[in-house]
Simulated assay, not measured.
Amino acid sequence: MLTSTLTVVDDLRPGVRILIKDESLYSSGSHKEPAAYAVAAQARADGHDRVFVGSCGSYGRAMAKAAAEIGLKCTVVLPAGWGDSGEFALSTGAEICFAEGGYEDAVDEARRLAEETGCADGNVDGPYKNAVLAGHGRVIDALHAELGSSPATVWVPIGNGTTIVALHRRLQALGWPVAVQGVGSPGNNPILTSWPGPYQVLPSDAVITTEHNEPLVNWHALHGPDALAALAESGGAAHAATDDELVAAQALLARYGLRPSPAGAAGLAGLLQHTGSLTGTQIVILTGRSL
């Protein structure tokens, strides 16, 4: 498994120290690979020979890679007509199924298939949820080892809210007071539209996916309520970034040899659009790249 890199960027916002933590360098192109390995290992230890996951792309790729290395069969359910055709997962030996509808429908179908066959449900809100959160939280240990306990803010994309919850959980365990700032697609995620109030699911036909925002789009974020609590408890907030802002952030990062997808660059897009004052080190986590 490839470790991530840390890049210092001091010229994107005057007077603000920005550190880029590139978690997109895993072979699957996704920061979700450590979580996928944790789930696959636990499922294997529990006696399962196959794991089912629903994904819009990145978690499916990560799980397919992890399962192949551990010797576990894998089925990835993708939303029909979305950007990921399943080519990478297929190359690892995984099976691909398609579900009509969106991401949530793919997860529901994966859950149904796992229950029907008695196989492992590897979805992020399933029985291996704690393994998912532990895997996502490992990046915090790496950052803490490099930076110590100095004041900092971490910027990450908003999808299901899983990463936000995982980062905050690990930060609390370390006693590191870091504000977690989540960045999502405007109008397309209930964490973003609910902030700062109570969690409210969006109508399933209210969200709009594009080639740039797919990983950020949910009408029901599976860890939504906990993510809202994590943002508030950490002193962070939810921020919006348009497709144009995502693409602009991606282009800026390319100047430093960094190649995230537009959605993977959402953290930087949100930071650059933030109009308030920024104190302490600003850490941007890049979560995915296009394959």
Rank of each mutant, 00 (worst) to 15 (best):
S27K: 05
S28T: 01
S28K: 00
S30H: 00
S30C: 01
S30T: 01
H31T: 00
E33C: 04
E33W: 02
P34Q: 07
P34T: 06
A35Q: 08
A35E: 08
A36F: 05
Y37M: 13
Y37V: 10
Y37C: 08
Y37K: 09
A38R: 04
V39R: 03
A40I: 04
A40M: 05
A40P: 03
A40G: 06
A41N: 09
A41H: 03
A41E: 08
A41Q: 10
Q42C: 07
Q42M: 07
Q42K: 11
A43M: 03
R44G: 00
A45I: 00
D46Y: 02
D46S: 00
G47Q: 02
H48S: 04
D49R: 06
D49P: 03
D49Q: 05
R50F: 04
R50V: 11
R50W: 04
V51K: 00
F52D: 01
F52R: 00
F52W: 10
V53W: 00
G54Y: 03
G54P: 08
G54L: 09
G54I: 05
S55Q: 06
S55N: 09
S55W: 00
C56I: 15
C56K: 07
S58E: 14
R61E: 14
R61D: 13
A62T: 13
M63R: 00
K65H: 14
K65A: 14
A67N: 06
A67M: 03
A67T: 06
A67S: 14
A67G: 09
A68Q: 12
E69N: 02
E69F: 01
L72N: 02
L72Q: 04
K73V: 09
C74W: 00
T75R: 09
T75L: 06
V77Y: 00
V77T: 02
L78Q: 08
P79K: 06
P79A: 10
P79T: 11
A80W: 06
A80C: 08
A80K: 10
W82H: 15
G83D: 11
S85D: 15
S85Y: 11
S85I: 14
G86S: 15
G86I: 12
A89V: 12
L90C: 13
S91Y: 14
G93V: 15
G93W: 10
G93N: 13
A94H: 07
E95D: 11
I96G: 10
A99K: 02
E100F: 03
G101V: 06
G101S: 10
G102R: 01
Y103H: 08
Y103A: 07
Y103L: 02
Y103I: 04
E104H: 04
E104T: 03
D105F: 07
D105L: 05
D105W: 01
V107Y: 01
E109R: 07
E109S: 05
E109M: 07
E109T: 06
E109I: 07
E109V: 08
E109Q: 11
A110P: 11
A110S: 12
R111S: 13
R111H: 12
R112A: 14
L113E: 13
A114E: 10
A114R: 11
E115S: 15
E116L: 05
E116Q: 07
E116S: 09
C119M: 12
A120I: 09
A120F: 02
G122E: 08
N123D: 13
V124H: 08
V124K: 03
V124N: 05
V124Y: 04
D125W: 11
D125R: 15
G126A: 13
G126V: 07
P127S: 03
K129Y: 08
K129E: 12
K129G: 06
K129Q: 12
N130P: 00
N130R: 07
N130Y: 08
A131H: 12
